[in-house]
Computed example of a mutant assay.
Amino acid sequence: MRAAEIQEPGRPPLPADRAAPVPGPGETLVKVGAAPITPLDVLCASGTSYFGRPATPYVPGVQGVGTAGGRPVWFTTSAGMAPGDGSMAETVSVPTEDLVELPEGVDPVAVAALGLSAVAAHMALTWRGGLAAGEQVLVLGAGGVVGQAAVQLARIAGARRIVAGARSPAARDRAKQAGADAVVALDTDDVAELTARFAAVADGPVDLVLDPLFGPPAAAAARTLRAGGRLVNLGSSAAETCPIDSSTLRSRSLRLLGYTNNELSPEQRAAAITMVAEQAALGRLKVAHEIVALDDVERAWLRQAGGAAAGRIVLAL
């Protein structure tokens, strides 16, 4: 079978011919249709992550969409985090417990593009952030995959107004396309300036902030929250530290919450990906993405690693 193969940590995968996998006890064979190239894939393959140096050669890909027994499925793998192969192959053997059956007729590429990023957006907003209908939400990094999904998922959950923040003009355009009511430029690290920009377009104090950035944008967003408001952090794309001042936290009794997909139970993850797939099938949830062929995986991987991808890159198998 054809697959993408990491031959040495820190180097991009190359197309390769490999033996087809043979499922072991408790495993199911999946014919893969689409596999996204994600930041986690790049991190795992780097050999410098907290997962350690992966055993090579191996097939990368921590998630994918395909068919098993004639039924559409989404699946996750531990490729790069533990020995074994991932989703970027024509066929993969997956623990049966890691399969989630999808609704008939779903677009595998659309679901692959959303994947765990949309799961994170949905669960951070609802399960962790407690989003209620009628609340106002501020989404930082709204041009990224998590942010685009969060804007749409907040709307689906009943948010009355959604303010988005994004750095580049292209990212701001993606946030608008996702349906944000107002979009703020995050092209400065001046916390006071960012706070003023958020306040100018928000309809009063914000109830909930979704933050995959941290750093100055999160500090500014915290200042827009109402008393008892919540900020859910699920990333640090802007900075590993954040200049939130104590008086902002104390004066409004704010709640700062952390989120990771790793905390989800298999049942929570399955329910979330099912919801994401259903909304995608209804045309209510999508993110910017591009499709690449297996022969182009090396260049596509390098664009993802270098931050040059305009949306999620999905490998079509």
Rank of each mutant, 00 (worst) to 15 (best):
A192K: 13
V139Y: 02
L208A: 11
P216R: 00
S168K: 10
R230F: 08
P212L: 03
P169Y: 07
R172S: 07
V151N: 06
V232K: 05
R223E: 15
V146I: 15
V139T: 07
F214N: 09
G130T: 11
L194N: 04
L225C: 14
A170T: 11
R160P: 00
Q152I: 12
A142C: 12
D203V: 11
S168N: 03
P216W: 00
A171F: 00
V201F: 08
V146Y: 07
A149S: 15
A124G: 13
Q152Y: 12
A121R: 08
L138T: 11
A124K: 07
D173K: 13
L208V: 12
G141C: 03
T195N: 01
F214E: 01
L186P: 02
P216M: 06
L125I: 13
A196V: 07
A120R: 02
R161W: 09
A178S: 15
A149F: 06
L225H: 09
L210E: 01
A218Q: 07
A159L: 10
A192H: 14
A220G: 07
G165E: 05
A157K: 04
R128H: 09
G144P: 05
R172V: 09
W127Y: 13
V209A: 11
V232W: 02
A178P: 05
G228T: 12
D173T: 13
D187F: 01
R167A: 14
A159K: 10
A200M: 08
G129D: 09
P212A: 01
I162R: 03
R223D: 14
A157T: 05
A200E: 14
R161S: 14
I156C: 09
V151D: 05
V139I: 14
G143R: 09
A220L: 08
H122E: 14
L213S: 00
M123K: 14
G134T: 13
V119F: 06
L225G: 08
L210A: 03
R197N: 02
P217C: 06
G165W: 00
H122R: 15
T188V: 13
I162F: 00
I162L: 04
R197P: 02
L125T: 10
E135R: 10
L138A: 10
P217Q: 06
R172E: 11
L225I: 14
V201M: 08
V232C: 01
A132P: 00
D187C: 08
G147L: 06
L213R: 00
V163A: 02
Q152A: 10
R167M: 09
G228N: 10
L231N: 12
D187E: 09
F198R: 08
V206F: 04
G141H: 03
F198S: 03
L213Q: 07
G134H: 11
R155T: 08
A180W: 05
G179F: 01
V191G: 04
V209N: 04
V209Y: 05
D189M: 02
Q152S: 11
A118G: 11
D211R: 01
A185N: 10
L213F: 00
V163H: 01
G130W: 10
V139F: 04
G141E: 04
P169M: 13
E135G: 06
A180G: 04
R172D: 11
F198P: 02
G165L: 05
V119T: 13
V139P: 03
D207Q: 11
R223N: 12
